[in-house]
Nucleic acid binder design. Sequence first.
DNA 1: TTTTGAGTTGTTCGA
DNA 2: GTCGAACAACTCAAA
Length: 472
Amino acid sequence: MGPSLVWFRQDLRLSDNPALLAAVERDEPIIPVYIWSPEEEGGWAPGGASQWWLNESLQALSEDLGEFDARLTLRSGSALSVLRRLIAETGADAVFWNRRYEPAARRRDAEIKRSLLEDGIEARSSNGSLLWEPWTIETKSGGPYKVFTPFYNACLAAGLSETPAKEPEELPLPDSWPRSEALASFDLEPVPDWAEGLRDAWEPGEAGARRILNRFSRSGVGRYAKERDLPARRGTARLSAHLHFGEISPREAWAAARKGGDVWKRQLVWREFGYHLLYHFEHTTDAPLRQEFERFPWKDAPAELQAWQKGETGYPIVDAGMRELWRTGWMHNRVRMIVASFLVKDLMVPWQEGARWFWDTLVDADLANNTLGWQWTAGCGADAAPYFRVFNPMSQGQRFDPNGKYVRRWVPELEGLSNKHIHEPWNASEKVLQRAGVELGKDYPFPIVDHGEARKAALEAYGQLRGDTRPR
DNA sequence: TTTTGAGTTGTTCGA
DNA sequence: GTCGAACAACTCAAA
């Protein structure tokens, strides 16, 4: 028998990695491989922030493998041809990987498996990324779930079969290593370098993921239910990007969740639900699940979209969120809902525009979860927010950032305003504004839309849609 | 087949 | 200031 290729993808870790463990069990020399093939992602190649993270994470994985005296072989190109070339170069006769579930990846992987088996190569895939794979959970009548709570209950009823596995004690090594391309040749690092804020905020890689999870499970998970909605606090785990890149397994996250209530557990299952939905409804990355929304009167409003992207809408909580995103590659979940509602309902810009912006700017950009989130907000997806649920940026700000700490952190030009005015500066008197050193329209924009009117217009449009769909 | 109860995250209005 | 109802029906999931 020849060596085993372990093909890393969105499972950039050594602990609880089923593909790696399967290869270790086979007990032939292991050659770890990563293939950069953005053109095989069906139009959803990693965005800028994700590429930055990936670069760091590959570096970390490479170093972690170094501790085992193993090397990570980097290649770019079509995955199948790269694998075939590596097989020819190394004499490998087995390839192991953990499954992906996005439409394009699935189709490609199926084709790869078929081709390799045809070549007489052992090709084995495992589940390293989900607690429940999409096809294992179904309703009593055999279909996919479209409502979260019954899905959640079905997951709990199905139970988890395996507990997390430790990293291997040692890796069987080959006599020689195949040539690796330089990580830098993937061009993942931003030029010019805009990643300073990302570097300050994150530690990509398995060690960083474990540090975060340990801290959260020690002191965060107990407070999670109470603090998770307050963006000024570190009330959430901030594990999303680590989970997306597979630097820590969902089983380990689940084990930590057991110590907390079910609030965080439910969040982990939301992640599963996103994959469940994307698996069963592939078109939802680009088109609404509910077809009638194809006819929604979305606006082509490039100036408003740009103001939203830059955090210059004149609504402090919205702008704070968008600037946090731009600076750190991440946004607090509560604020994601607020900014998304604002784009889709106040500005009536298509949710796909928001999804694309998040895709490019989030370090945790995840096709399944991004799609679910945006369709939920727009009201066109499975188990979506009711159409009349329009977030009010002032009251959301008052409720979840009552002392304005979050706004002041990201919109420092409003720093001098009192808590009374911090979420609605246009309601402050000239005198108050002057004392705070704020000139509206100069230091900070006037609101680009009137929320009250925008809300009415949105409700009108949604009502129209319903009228249209009524049977004649 | 039919029935029944339920459905992440909100806001506004009027009593 | 507080509280409950309305917002709109529809679809889902299970019995």
